[in-house]
Design a protein around this nucleic acid. Structure first.
Length: 498
RNA sequence: GGUAUCGUGGCCGAGCGGCUAGGCUGAGCUCUGCAAAAGCUCCUACAGCGGUUCGAAUCCGCUCGAUACCUCCA
């Protein structure tokens, strides 16, 4: 069996994954800033790393998955007047900052339950770790890599770069950045343009503020991740994940701070998911092309032709490798919707199908092919979490499942072992790891089922009288009501709720 | 301007030097009272131009095009 390899942004290549402590994995993923509603773009990292989390557990690791909630807000733009994003909006909406934070945190949790993501082991908030952040800043100052100006504290990037590799993750060259970083206003507090804030002095109108050795203020935008990851995962841990757009400056700054404070590289494997684009452009507030998750589920956005269910979106995301960009379009979402329904239908068939020995010889080629498809899934996942290929193999197996039911393939053509392997494969990958659980669970409604059996019986009688007008009317009206009848090969009738 | 990434059939997307994924759409056929579902078959692509190689979508160079980061950003 193959070993798990992941693409490490730090080394720009795939590497065999070896945890720091055998049997245990520490994983930190940059979480949401709860100053507003999550959009489709945000779905990608949390779904991607949900699969990573599930897969690591499947491999037998005990995983501590930490994903923060950024509720302290960042200042709007470095160098400009410091403004707390969250406080600014709260004032507009006449809400307490924490009220706003609570609202969007709840909404975030709701949306990602809809996406069937597992909850992280620890979900620390920035506001809950002000003390840890201050302590870390003090350490960095003590070590001589940060300086205070007017109640704010900045990290001295130039000094850091003289002895350490600043740019190790993002490939930046400090000299280039010193030359090319564009002019920003109010930069005079910093010794160099590339320096970044660890602590910002809070202007009087700023609502979110905490006392510190440097006066009242709030933490800079990178320090929370360094402080909280080290608290819960140790000063060095296994996997740090997040969107590619965080690689620079966010993750680069995290590395620099942590290196000084703790004396070691904070994370050994850095995994970055690519962006979701729309019409070829990154989806983001700056482009005015976001689709909020609530809009996505309701269809209420000018870019949407119809609503898309959380599972459709999850499937859509997993059908692409996480390091590729993924372009949103209604056509692509609708294709995903149909494809997923096909997988679910096959899974449903599989649930009801038992292995019944029939007379005849084994079809060795088929049997072998099916086994290969099943076994490859693990290899695909080991190859940098290639969910796209896993799904492709499930689609390869789908006609086999349907043919076993339809009789195009006889049971004896595959061995019982292989049959059980198919069942296990689908359960493991579709349900447990990719976590694409069927959404319509209405079939365990006994009342409805009783009614349906009666209607089906009545239609059968009409058919036996060759009263096709009546039988078709029943079928068509049920369809209009959202219930699809299927005349099975063996004469029975099943139904699905749309 | 700097630094990267990418350009695959009608659409979405795998792909990491040879065996030409997969999904959706379209066409035909089988099954069916008719449908639906399902099964089978077909539509065989890698931006362009050079180069390396027995052999390239895959490696190298150039050209064209697109995107991302350099500023909050998943």
């Amino acid at each position: 069996m193959s070993e798990l390899k992941v693409y490490n942004s730090l080394k720009r290549q795939k590497e065999v994954f070896t945890p720091l402590y055998p049997g245990h994995v520490g994983m930190y993923v940059c979480g949401p800033t709860v100053s507003g509603e999550s959009h489709l773009g945000h779905a990608r990292p949390y779904i991607t790393f949900d699969v990573v989390y599930r897969y690591l557990q499947h491999l037998g690791y005990k995983v501590r998955y930490v994903r923060n909630i950024t509720d302290a807000g960042h200042f709007e733009e470095e160098g400009r007047e410091a403004e707390d994003k969250i406080s600014k909006k709260a004032q507009l909406e006449k809400l307490e900052p924490m009220e706003l934070v609570q609202k969007y945190t709840n909404l975030f949790h709701w949306a990602f339950r809809e996406f069937n993501t597992l909850e992280p082991s620890i979900e620390p908030t920035a506001t809950g770790h002000i003390i840890e952040q201050i302590e870390m800043i003090k350490t960095i100052i003590d070590k001589g890599y940060a300086y205070e100006v007017n109640g704010s504290v900045y990290f001295d990037v130039k000094k850091y770069a003289s002895t350490h590799d600043y740019g190790i993750l993002s490939g930046r060259v400090l000299e280039d950045m010193l030359e090319t970083t564009r002019e920003l206003e109010n930069q005079d507090e910093k010794r160099n343009k590339v320096d970044f804030a660890l602590w910002k002095n809070a202007p009087p109108e700023h609502l979110m503020r905490w006392p510190s050795p440097w006066g009242e203020g709030f933490p800079g935008w990178h320090i929370e991740c360094s402080a909280m990851s080290s608290k819960y995962l140790g000063t060095q841990f296994d996997i740090h994940g997040g969107g590619m757009d965080l690689q620079f400056p966010h993750h680069e700054c995290e590395i620099a701070q942590s290196e000084i404070a703790h004396g070691e590289l904070m994370a050994r494997y850095w995994m970055h998911n690519n962006m979701i684009t729309i019409d070829g452009r990154k989806m983001g507030k700056a482009y005015n092309n976001t689709i909020r998750l609530t809009e996505l589920f309701s269809g209420d956005n000018y870019q949407l032709e119809k609503p898309y269910s959380p599972m459709t979106v999850r499937f859509f995301i997993l059908q692409t490798h996480y390091r590729s960009t993924l372009d949103f379009s209604n056509e692509a979402l609708q294709a995903a919707e149909k494809g997923l329904q096909r997988l679910w239908a096959a899974y449903d068939v599989l649930q009801k199908l038992g292995y019944t020995k029939t007379e005849g010889a084994l079809n060795e080629d088929l049997d072998k092919q099916v086994r290969t498809w099943c076994e490859e899934c693990q290899d695909f996942m080991n190859d940098d979490i290639n969910t796209a290929k896993v799904l492709a193999n499930l689609f390869e197996i789908t006609p086999v499942i349907n043919s076993l039911k339809g009789g195009q393939i006889k049971m004896h053509e595959i061995s019982e072992d292989t049959f059980q392997l198919i069942k296990k494969t689908w359960k493991t990958w579709l349900i447990d790891i990719l976590a694409l659980e069927p959404e319509n669970q209405a079939s365990d409604n006994n009342t409805l089922d009783g009614v349906m059996q009666l209607i089906i019986e009545m239609r059968k009688e009409a058919k036996s009288r060759k009263d096709y007008a009546a039988s078709d009317r029943i079928r068509n009206q049920l369809l209009a009501a959202g219930i699809q009848l299927k005349d099975e090969k063996d004469g029975s009738v099943s139904y699905t709720i749309q």
